[in-house]
Structure formats: structure tokens, C-alpha cells
Design a protein around this nucleic acid. Structure first.
Length: 401
DNA sequence: TCACCTGTCACTTTTGAATGGT
DNA sequence: AACCATTCAAAAGTGACAGGTG
């Protein structure tokens, strides 16, 4: 383990080197998820990551973060967003842009971004839908993108929206150390960390809060799987403008047509929708009669943990009303309404958060919630909750797409 | 002007199921 | 029946490319 930590420290570099090194030790413990098939592991989240001594103060709970371009994010979310990863690194699209309120105007803050797995699964795109195809590869923690304006005062951060358009994701650990490493065919969510700090040293100890946005969930891919995602990207990303007009390039014509032909609906692509009691086209965008505005499921807001700073493992879940809502074991509809009405997110509260994005843990953490067998591939619902027949009693409800 | 960003596409590599031999 | 090696198709990854942005 010590050797591994040294490896992390060597790998960490540039502006965030100190933070990556600092968090590496904690991350080593939860880099490898508990197996979904093992129900006998120690379920105490504090002991699980073995970091009960690492307490960290939070920012003022009044601090609010709003995700910009919510409409665009929601459109991608509803289709099951995909992000291309390449060896040299690709940017995220849509861009992550947020606005902040209720920071102390005179205190300095640093803004960091990382991307963490949503669950313990690897996915496969088959017959126009995402299905679980096996267990996830271990995630490489410790890579952060530090916003180049960091540090600056709360007043400066709140003056205008904050854009993370330079973040790049890659599948190659050997590339630029500023790139965030992801595994293809795995599902992720970006996390925004706000640290009260005036330099990289105090960044390690200053009060910290983490924010996540459900609409930013995506599956990392090396080539787009869902044609609808491709079209949405082309139509909205200015750098892909060249692909909008079929008459412009020669490339635009030939292959897509060929692909379209190979994907033409055959008998195989028609399925029977048991809910609608009618056949439906086997395409994630056409899954329901309401496909133009699929429901945004509510369950993950603010719930993804900061695995790098297991500060909130204080067993005080539910101390406050807000805490209760933020508790991943108790996602409430009221919080959903709060989200839909304002698109504002609080930081997550004291909870067992380092495990939240790992359904395996969540299921195991509740004796009342038996773990469904993962040996048989489950259909991945692009619109949110797994059917209640699959998870009869769980209240985790992995809500994506 | 030019560095950079995008999705496309042809090609290569990897994966995993099927098959057959011991 | 169990194990191992081989084959082969499908899936996934790679890199060059043209057309675009800033």
C-alpha cells in the first residue's frame, strides 16, 4: 500500500500535486470497490475506508452552486450522455459552467473538478440501449483539474459564471497529468469541489464542499454508440459545425448512410413495451410516448461523495432536515422538487458519502435491501430508475438517463 | 494565419464465445 | 467431466483526416 501511495505521489504534478498526493492515501482504500457478490464485508463506511481520523470542515451550508446550460445538459441526459475519451484527451461537451452564490466575498477559494464512477459496472451498448456487461475496472483517483483562476476571493468567483471548458478526459495514464483518466464504457459524474484556501498548501486543510449535478452523468466511450447523441453534439458544439451540413464534406455523406442502413429497424429492433402494452422502436430516444421530455429522476442530487476527503463520516446522518434530504439512503421527493424548481444544489451533508456512487455498497448497507444478482445482465434504463421488480425495496434508485 | 477541436472512417487490436482435442 | 488450446467474429480502440472555431 505504501508503494502504491508513493506511486500516486510521483504521478501527481503541477498545480494540484500536493492535493493529489494528500488525497492519494485515502483514495487507495476505495479505489477498488467491494464486490457486489460479497455480502459479508464490513458495512461500516467509516471503517471501510479506514479514514475515521480524517475530519474536515465544510463550507458554509448556505453556499449554492447552479449549473448553467441546464436545458442542454438535460437533453443529453435524457438520451444517455456519452463523452468521447481519446489518448490525447478530449474536452467535455456540453461545457461545465456554474454560478456560485453565498460565498464569503473576502475569503479566498479554490475550485477543483474531478470525475468519479457512478457505480461498479461496465456497460455495453447493445440493441440501442446500455446494458451492464460486467464489473468495472478500478478507477484511478487523485487527478483533479484546478480551475486556472484559483485561488481568488468569493467576490471574484461570484462575479460571473465559472467555466471548466479546458478539462480533458483520457484513457491513457501516460498522457498529460492534467487530464482526468477514465475507463471506456464506464459511467461517471463530474464533481465540483470548492475549497476555502489561499494556496495549494491550505487547500489540503481548508473547509471543503462538493457539488454534483445529476444531468452531467455520462458514459465514457471511445466512439459514440447512440446516433442521437452524435447528432445532438454536432448540432450544439460549434467545433463540430462542419458536420451539420451534409453537402459540405464528402465524409459526411458516405458512412453515416451506410451505418444508418445497417441500423435500419429490422424485426429484431422491435420490442414489446410491457408498460405501454404495445411494441416500441428499439431506440433509447423512443422508449416512451413521452420521449420528448423524459422525466428527470431525482435521486442523485448532491449525493455523490467526496471520496478524497472522507470528512463527513461522522455517523450523524439526519441531524438536520437538509441532511435527511441529502442522505442517499433517503432521497426525498422534496429535494427533487427543490432541484427542479431552482436548479440549485447544496453541498452534500454528513453521510456515508464515499460509497454513494457505488450501488454495491448501498445495497449491502441495508439488510432490508437484498442485492440483486448481477450475474445476469440487467437492462439499463436510460431514463432513470431500475424497475421495482429488479430492486424491490431499495431506496438508492440509481437514477441516470 | 495557425493551433486547436470536432466527428468520421479505415484499420488494428482486444475480447469472448464456440469448438475440438487431450 | 474437466481442462486447455485454437479459431473466428464482434466489439472496442487508434490515428489520420477534413472541416470547422477562435
Amino acid at each position: 500500500m505504501l508503494d502504491d501511495n508513493n506511486l500516486f505521489q510521483r504521478a501527481a504534478s503541477s498545480a494540484y500535486a500536493s492535493m493529489a498526493a494528500f488525497t492519494a492515501a485515502a483514495n487507495m482504500y476505495n479505489s477498488f470497490y467491494p464486490s457486489t457478490s460479497n455480502t459479508n464485508v464490513n458495512m461500516d463506511p467509516v471503517n471501510y475506508i479506514n479514514c475515521q481520523d480524517m475530519k474536515r470542515e465544510r463550507l458554509d451550508p448556505k453556499v449554492r452552486v447552479k449549473l448553467e446550460d441546464m436545458d442542454l445538459w438535460s437533453r443529453f441526459y435524457s438520451l444517455g450522455n456519452e463523452m468521447i475519451i481519446t489518448k490525447n484527451g478530449r474536452r467535455l461537451f456540453p461545457n461545465l459552467r456554474v454560478t456560485i452564490s453565498e460565498l464569503d466575498p473576502n475569503t479566498k477559494y479554490m475550485f477543483l473538478l474531478d470525475i468519479v464512477p457512478m457505480d461498479d459496472n461496465r456497460y455495453k451498448y447493445h440493441e440501442s440501449s446500455w446494458n451492464i456487461s460486467g464489473k468495472a475496472e478500478p478507477h484511478m483517483y487523485g487527478r483533479y483539474y484546478v480551475h486556472p483562476d484559483s485561488p481568488q476571493t468569493g467576490a471574484q468567483w461570484m462575479k460571473q459564471s465559472i467555466l471548466f471548458n479546458k478539462v480533458k478526459i483520457t484513457n491513457s495514464p501516460m498522457q498529460n497529468p492534467n487530464h482526468i483518466i477514465l475507463n471506456s464504457m464506464h459511467r461517471y459524474i463530474p464533481r465540483l469541489h470548492i475549497v476555502q484556501a489561499s494556496d495549494s498548501y491550505s487547500m489540503r486543510t481548508g473547509p471543503l464542499s462538493t457539488f454534483v449535478f445529476q444531468e452531467t452523468v455520462f458514459i465514457a466511450v471511445t466512439a459514440y454508440q447512440n446516433d442521437q447523441i452524435t447528432k445532438l453534439k454536432i448540432n450544439n458544439n460549434p467545433f463540430a459545425k462542419g458536420f451539420r451540413e451534409p453537402t459540405h464534406g464528402k465524409k459526411v455523406n458516405a458512412k453515416p448512410l451506410k451505418r444508418l442502413q445497417t441500423n435500419l429497424p429490422s424485426e429484431k429492433s422491435l420490442k414489446y413495451d410491457e408498460n405501454l402494452h404495445r411494441p416500441y422502436k428499439n431506440d433509447s430516444s423512443l422508449l416512451s410516448v413521452n420521449s420528448s421530455s423524459p422525466p428527470l429522476q431525482s435521486t442523485m442530487h448532491g449525493a455523490i461523495a467526496d471520496s478524497t476527503t472522507p470528512t463527513y463520516l461522522d455517523n450523524s446522518v439526519g441531524d438536520h432536515e437538509q441532511d435527511s434530504d441529502m442522505n442517499p439512503m433517503n432521497f426525498s421527493s422534496s429535494y427533487h422538487q427543490h432541484f427542479q424548481a431552482n436548479s440549485f444544489y447544496s453541498s452534500y451533508a454528513s453521510d456515508s458519502s464515499p460509497m454513494i456512487y457505488n450501488p454495491a455498497y448501498t445495497y449491502m448497507n441495508s439488510a432490508a435491501n437484498p442485492i440483486p444478482s448481477t450475474s445476469t445482465p440487467m437492462h439499463f434504463n436510460p431514463y432513470g430508475r431500475y424497475p421495482s421488480s429488479v430492486y424491490p425495496t431499495n431506496n438508492y434508485n440509481p437514477a441516470f438517463f
